[in-house]
Amino acid sequence: MGSWRVYPAVAAGAFRRYATYRAATAAGVFTNTVFGLILVYTYLALWEARPGLGGYDQAQAVTYVWLGQALLAMLAVQGGGFETELMERIRTGEIAVDLYRPVDLQLWWLANDVGRAVFQLLGRGVVPFLFGALFFPAALPGEAAVWGAFLVSLLLAVLVSFAIRYLFALSVFWLLDGQGVAQAVMVTGVFCSGMTLPLNAFPGGLGEVVRALPWAAQLQVPADVLMGETAVPAAYLFQAAWAVALLAAGRLVQSAATRRVVVQGG
């Protein structure tokens, strides 16, 4: 395990590391805002034609859009988090360096991703969200308790998001190349997290399925907690169950994977 104090240090380092990419952050904020605008007008048209779609009114649909843009980078819904680096390290064999350390591999990368997520929430999330709340109708709660519940839900979302991508990344031990995996992370992330359309609005059986998958824990559940569309304990239970299951699966795969380390490079 190593010393517990190393993990906060890793998270702090990851935070500072992302903070050094200022131009990328600014470009990201701009992109999220523009995409938010496009989606908002699309949603407005859609909810005009289908009022109450997915149980949301127009203000809720718009809030959902801005929430999605604000959390996109934080939850690395399209990839681009720690897993890009981890896959590259596995591919080049550089992962060996990580294994020489007296630390737990999964906790090490989790700490890394938490540091990154916190930076992305502040650096990439706040501005698009405030922009949306200022210039468009919004369905935001007044009570601090709901915001608190939302933050907890967000933390659980970070764990699930990490756990999903950790499993994807470890597959490179067998696949030996991460390009296809990165694509898979992106496609499943965007579709199953509800980045295109709220999962609540998915019809019939498909809706039932995607709402039960772990990706639902990333955007849909925190959004519903914030807008009071779900019972908080049930939401936490759903997220925590997926987090525990996927993190445990990650540990299992990790122990199988590290035995294969040597195959890639000297």
Binding site: S3, R5, V6, A9, G13, P102, V103
Partner: peptide
């Protein structure tokens, strides 16, 4: 890679207790 050299050393400080 992206951080000053001293940051890596501070991390070692924690990592190896």
């Amino acid at each position: 890679w992206d951080l000053p050299l001293i940051d890596s050393y501070k991390l070692m400080h924690r990592m190896y207790r």
